[in-house]
Amino acid sequence: MKIVVIGNAGQLSYELVRILGENTICLGPEDTDITKEDVLSQTLAKLSPDVIINAAAYTAVDKAETDLALCHAINATAVENLAKYCKQANAFLVHVSTDYVFNGHKGSPYLPSDPIEPQGAYGKTKADGEKALLQLLPGASCLIRTAWVYSAHGNNFVKTMLRLMTEKPQLTVIDDQIGTPTWAKGLAEVCVSAAKNKTAGVYHWTDEGVASWYDFALAIQELALEKGLLDKIIPVLPIPTSAYPTPAKRPQYSVLDKTSAREAFSSCSPTHWRKQLSSMMDELEKETNE
């Protein structure tokens, strides 16, 4: 089976290559233009993949509010282009979406079948991508929604917190947005399982458990001190969302229900986010000491 990964610079593509092997074909902006249907189709036709995993996304949530054209091109138009190619080439598409397609008002874990109502530009463009995929390729695609993704590679909340904890005398972190941190490695394992088994449908995948961004930050500091990634403790104080206004509105509660995913991807049992965070930070520690 020939698997092609779209995206070559992000956290997910990094983890996909670790699983699939160094010879995996990852298409980046220098290889093709995913926002142009004819260019993308020509590139893919030469490669003739059986399965495509789309790991490309515009994820700058606040910047998306003013950079809407590019955000829409990557998160919606490109997904439509990939779905069109897969439909005519009889290929399978694995696509990753986000908890930000939900409004955050439900108060209990979101099911894959729950109605979507994105609150910001990023979520709206991801929702448009979902709609195009499910309209064009419902039987030959796997849509996986995830949340709060981080990795030892690239920029993310974990690495930002570690940097700020060395630079600042104290930090304030939002404590009333609730979700689930997700190590990109576990997400990549599910994407590969979906690709190899051509598991069609809409699924949710995150690590286990729930947390606020404040809980997440405290765990990052505690584990980093244990592992020698930080050498001092600083105060980390909880604040409400109202005290830290951002251009984009974020869901207050976006925990995802993984019941159907646990069955569909039975070889990939989800692990508690704190344990996953510890494993990822072991990788960071190893890299730091090399």
Rank of each mutant, 00 (worst) to 15 (best):
A45Y: 03
Y122F: 10
T146K: 03
A91C: 10
T43R: 15
I52E: 02
D114C: 09
D62F: 01
D67W: 00
T35I: 04
L70I: 13
K131P: 04
T32A: 15
D67L: 03
I53E: 09
I116W: 00
D67H: 09
A132T: 07
S108D: 13
S48Y: 00
D33F: 00
A147G: 10
P109S: 06
A64P: 01
A78T: 09
E65P: 04
A147Q: 07
D67S: 13
Y110I: 07
G139H: 10
C71W: 03
D114T: 06
G123C: 05
D50M: 01
S48P: 00
A57M: 07
T43W: 01
V61D: 01
L136K: 09
K84A: 15
P138L: 11
L137D: 12
V96W: 03
V101M: 01
Y100C: 15
A89Q: 14
A91R: 06
G107H: 04
W148S: 11
A147Y: 00
Q119T: 14
A55S: 13
L44Q: 06
D62A: 03
A147S: 15
I144P: 13
P115Y: 06
T125C: 11
Q42S: 10
A147I: 01
K63T: 12
G120S: 15
W148E: 04
Q119C: 11
V51K: 01
L40N: 02
P118N: 06
S97H: 02
E117M: 14
E65W: 02
N103G: 05
G120H: 05
A83L: 03
V61I: 15
V61L: 13
C71S: 15
P109V: 05
S41L: 01
G104E: 02
N81V: 08
G139T: 11
K87S: 15
I144K: 09
N75K: 01
Y122Q: 07
A140Q: 15
L70G: 12
L136Q: 13
E80N: 08
A60S: 11
I34M: 09
S151H: 06
P138I: 10
T59M: 06
V79A: 13
V149P: 05
A121C: 12
L133H: 07
H95Q: 15
K46P: 01
L93W: 09
I144F: 11
V39D: 14
E80V: 02
D38N: 12
E30T: 13
L44S: 10
N90A: 15
P115G: 10
D62S: 00
A60H: 10
D50F: 09
A147M: 07
K131L: 13
H95G: 02
D50H: 13
G107M: 08
L136Y: 05
A83Y: 08
W148G: 07
L40K: 03
D33P: 03
F92D: 06
E80Y: 10
S97M: 06
T146M: 11
L82T: 10
A140Y: 04
Y85H: 11
